[in-house]
Computed example of a mutant assay.
Amino acid sequence: MQICNVCREQTPKYRCPACKIRYCTLGCYKKHKDSCLPVEKPSTLDIESTDGGPSEPWSVEDLLHKDDIIDKVPLQRLQLLGQSKELRDILCNPHLRRLLSSIDNAENKADAMRAAMREPLFVEFSDQCLKIVENETNASASGDVL
């Protein structure tokens, strides 16, 4: 699934505490640490506020900015994903959950997605997501009501 962000050859076992890249061996860590750039978390997505209490939870709208993506799915269609029993059933699979987590944690998300698309379970998950969103898109385009 994932490869070491330093040597690009082996499966990573470790994560740099400062910048969160994944690496496979002590040798790779030693090569990496000279060029390590610590990552600062964005303040808008912090789990806790500066006063130590919980902050307002972030929402999908916080992540969707008009200029971010050309092919953007409207929020109403994205919300259909959360209402799908079929999608919830697929998400019960622990292998898929680990796979999604590894994509989310990957340094290079494009490479992680390409690797995931070789997994039949991930293809089934992504096809189900597209089916839900596209069915709504097709119904809206033709004027049909669901």
Rank of each mutant, 00 (worst) to 15 (best):
N93T: 03
S140G: 10
L37D: 10
D67K: 10
Y23N: 00
Y29H: 12
A110S: 13
G53M: 11
L63H: 07
D34F: 04
M1R: 03
T11G: 07
A110G: 10
S142H: 04
L78G: 06
N135S: 15
I21K: 13
Y29M: 07
S101I: 05
P42D: 13
E56K: 07
E107A: 05
C36N: 06
K109L: 03
L45E: 06
L37S: 12
V60R: 08
C19T: 03
V6R: 00
L96A: 04
G143Q: 02
A18K: 14
N5E: 08
E136N: 10
L75M: 04
T50D: 13
D34M: 03
H65G: 10
K30F: 05
V123I: 08
C92S: 13
C16N: 00
I21M: 11
C16I: 02
E136F: 05
I21Y: 09
K31S: 11
G27S: 09
E40C: 10
S55W: 00
G27M: 03
M1Q: 07
E48I: 15
D71N: 15
C16L: 04
C4S: 02
E40M: 10
Q76A: 14
I3A: 06
R88C: 08
H65Q: 14
P54F: 09
A112H: 01
A141L: 11
N135I: 05
G143T: 03
K131E: 14
D127T: 14
I69N: 10
L37F: 08
A112G: 02
S126W: 01
F122D: 00
L91H: 04
S55M: 07
L45K: 09
E136W: 01
E134F: 15
S126F: 08
H32A: 03
Q10L: 11
Y23E: 00
E40P: 05
E40R: 12
N108C: 13
N105I: 07
K41E: 13
G82P: 06
S35T: 11
L80T: 05
L81T: 04
D46W: 04
V6K: 00
Q2P: 08
A116W: 01
D51M: 06
Q83H: 09
G82I: 11
E86F: 01
A141K: 04
E56I: 05
I70T: 15
A115H: 07
E48A: 14
N138I: 15
R77F: 15
E86A: 14
I132A: 06
L63P: 01
G52M: 02
D89S: 10
L45W: 08
H32E: 05
T11H: 08
I70S: 15
C7P: 03
D51C: 13
Q79F: 11
Q2R: 12
F122P: 00
H95Q: 07
Q76V: 14
L121N: 01
K13S: 13
S55E: 05
V123S: 04
L37A: 09
E119T: 11
D111S: 15
I132G: 06
